[in-house]
């Protein structure tokens, strides 16, 4: 099974750090690339800016935070879901609460799943485990052609 990259779009370094810890804890070995906001995430996808020299190919999964500077999660979603090259990449939205209206907007824009950011670390590792389950399936997403 090919281990594809996870693109993790998150501006808060502590959230990034804790999530990486949780990934480590659950022994998820995929490469995780962090983009600090929507603009950087687009740059990654298009191999621009600091990602100019990265190996080509789409990430297998995008973990997307909503509230970010410059370009937020929903703006980023609207762009990639309208781009034939990126629209099939599965996206998991990270939200702060289940009641957010952003959740509905996210689904309207074509999000595949969402997770509510947990307050405690145990729940975080549990969610990473769920993502891992999701991951096992999406690692086999058919490639174009």
């Amino acid at each position: 099974m090919k281990m594809s990259t996870i693109l993790y779009v998150e501006d808060n370094p502590l959230d990034v750090d804790l999530t990486m810890e949780a990934f480590k804890e659950k022994k998820i070995a995929n490469q995780v690339v962090v983009a600090n906001d929507g603009v950087e995430a687009i740059e990654y996808l298009k191999q621009e800016g600091r990602f100019k020299d990265r190996k080509s190919g789409n990430p297998g999964l995008i973990l997307l935070d909503l509230k970010m500077p410059r370009m937020d999660g929903l703006e980023f979603l609207a762009i990639i879901k309208n781009d034939a090259q990126f629209k099939r990449i599965p996206v998991i939205m990270l939200t702060s609460s289940r009641e957010e209206k952003d959740l509905i907007r996210g689904y309207d824009l074509g999000v595949n799943a969402y997770v509510v950011k947990p307050v405690d670390f145990l729940s975080l590792t549990e969610i990473v485990r769920q993502i891992e389950g999701f991951w096992a399936i999406i690692n086999e997403v058919p490639s174009e052609g």
């Binding site: 502590l14 702060s96 307050v119 405690d120 670390f121």
Partner: peptide, 20 residues
């Protein structure tokens, strides 16, 4: 929900890591 929860999440997260 966003701004207050985030630092709380970090405190609990690192506290858990510290314990672990």
């Amino acid at each position: 929900s966003h701004d207050l929860k985030a630092p709380l999440r970090h405190i609990t997260g690192y506290n858990s890591l510290l314990e672990k």
